[in-house]
Every structure is written in structure tokens, then in C-alpha cells.
């Protein structure tokens, strides 16, 4: 098992690899989108602008499938950011990983990396620097918590009466069940995304152990991982929209 490069600031554990990978992901997404909107044109769009418009229309389709597009207009930005961020994050771990073997009490910025603290001489800590940020359950949990907070906040703000009432349906005794259901949504989101990407990376590591024999398998698996990464980004986005639609929009016909 690879360790994370964690340094401690007082009681605050700073995971350097998470910080780096999040920064890289955000930068790639931002630069990609900025390039796409650099020379916006109504008459003569560039290829990148066309691509970006296709993505926007794709996300519009996702939002429209969950709710009325008129109400969901404000969520298109959120959906776009989610799908681009998760897709890029999923792909980052595919081409390579950076793992260093660090000796005991290795220091970064004057702080000791926790995994190397108090190691016996001669032992090395395998520290994983470059990976998919979504292969870290803490980060997928962060995304899921954003969705969780957003859906409950929007439900309370836009649809308070029906949102609160839904906890007592069909009978008041279902209250604990409804709360669990609500809590299970972000947990499922986080674990689904994490498990898919993490499993992909683990399998890549395993295939690498096969040496030259593994090359065809690696090619197949990497191609499949790209597919899985896109699929998981899509699933995360559409579930987010469905959850928001469930809490914010009261459908007369549903009751």
C-alpha cells in the first residue's frame, strides 16, 4: 500500500499529493475552458469553441432530463464544472503515477512527512505523489458533501414546505428511514466514484507487475478506464441533478 505525503501544521494534516493533484486538475480544466472561450464568435466558432458548446449542450441535456430546463438553468454551470473536473481528475492517474521511496524522517518545507516518521533505518516509505485525485476517498467525499449541502440547502430555500414534509412520508414513522436515505446519497456518490477510479489504478499497478506480457492488457484496461472515467463523471453529474431536482421541485402529480 502506498502512503500519502502528509505533513502536519499543528493539528492540520496537509496531504501534499491531494493539494498538488487538485491544483493540477483545476488548472487543466480552467486552462481548457479559457482556451475554448478565448476567441468566442457567433458567426465563425473555433473547433475548441464547438467542442465546448457540445459539452454545454450535453450538460444541458443532463439537466433537462432531471428537471425543467427553465428552473435548471442556474445548475448548468455547476454541472459543467462537475463533469469537467471529475473527468479530468479521473484521467490524470491513467498515464502514469509518481511514487517515491523516501527514507526515514524525510522533510518537505521543513516539515516531516508523517509516513516516514519513526521509520527504522533501512526501511523506505512508498509515497504516492501523482494519482487521480478522485482515487482518494477524501476528495470524492468532498465533492459529495458539496452536493449534499447544495441539495439540502436548495431544498430548504426553494421548496421548504414540501422538502420538510417529504421526511414524514408516507408516514411519520418513516422519519429515520428518510434521514438515512438522505445521508446515503452522498456516501454512495463518494464511494462509487472513489471505488471505480481507485480500482482502475490498482489494476493498472497489478498489470504493470506482469512486465512486457502485460502491455496488451494495459492498453485494453487503459482504454476501458477512459470510458469508466467519462461514465463516472456523467453518473456523478446526473445524480447531482436528480438529487437537486428531487429536493427543490415539487411535482403535483407525484403525490
Amino acid at each position: 500500500m502506498h502512503e500519502s505525503p502528509i505533513i502536519k501544521f499543528g493539528g492540520f494534516h496537509l496531504d501534499l499529493s491531494a493539494v498538488i493533484m487538485l491544483f493540477v486538475t483545476c488548472t487543466i480544466v480552467f486552462v481548457l475552458v479559457r482556451l475554448a472561450v478565448r476567441n468566442l464568435s457567433v458567426e465563425n466558432p473555433s473547433k475548441l469553441q464547438n467542442f465546448m458548446e457540445w459539452v454545454v449542450e450535453f450538460v444541458q441535456g443532463i439537466v433537462a432530463s432531471a428537471m425543467d430546463l427553465k428552473k435548471g438553468k442556474g445548475y448548468i454551470s455547476l454541472g459543467l464544472t462537475l463533469i469537467l473536473f471529475i473527468f479530468v481528475a479521473n484521467l490524470l492517474g491513467l498515464p502514469f503515477a509518481i511514487i517515491t521511496d523516501l527514507p526515514a524522517n524525510f522533510e518537505v518545507f521543513g516539515k516531516t512527512i508523517e509516513a516516514t516518521r519513526n521509520l527504522h533505518d533501512g526501511y523506505m516509505a512508498h509515497v504516492l505523489w501523482w494519482k487521480s485525485p478522485t482515487a482518494d476517498i477524501s476528495i470524492t467525499a468532498g465533492l459529495a458533501i458539496i452536493v449534499f449541502i447544495l441539495m439540502n440547502y436548495l431544498g430548504l430555500k426553494l421548496n421548504r414546505k414540501h422538502y420538510l414534509k417529504h421526511y414524514l412520508e408516507p408516514f411519520p414513522i418513516f422519519l429515520p428511514l428518510n434521514i438515512i436515505e438522505n445521508l446515503a446519497k452522498p456516501v454512495a456518490l463518494a464511494i462509487r466514484l472513489f471505488a471505480n477510479i481507485f480500482a482502475g489504478e490498482v489494476l493498472i499497478t497489478v498489470i504493470l507487475k506482469m512486465g512486457i506480457l502485460g502491455i496488451p492488457f494495459l492498453a485494453v484496461w487503459q482504454g476501458f478506464s477512459i470510458f469508466v472515467g467519462a461514465l463516472q463523471a456523467f453518473i456523478f453529474t446526473i445524480l447531482t441533478m436528480v438529487y437537486i431536482a428531487q429536493t427543490t421541485i415539487h411535482e403535483e402529480a407525484a403525490h
Binding site: 502528509i6 492540520f12 494534516h13 496537509l14 496531504d15 491531494a18 493539494v19 487538485l22 491544483f23 486538475t25 483545476c26 464544472t81 473536473f85 485525485p133 482518494d136 476517498i137 477524501s138 476528495i139 467525499a141 468532498g142 465533492l143 458533501i145 458539496i146
Partner: peptide, 13 residues
């Protein structure tokens, strides 16, 4: 699960 990582990812996003 590191709550610090959760926080960082939320802020980054």
C-alpha cells in the same frame, strides 16, 4: 478519510 482533504477538495472545487 482525512477531513483536511475533504475541506481542501471542497475549497478547490
Amino acid at each position: 478519510v482525512l477531513w483536511e482533504n475533504i475541506l481542501i477538495s471542497i475549497v478547490a472545487f
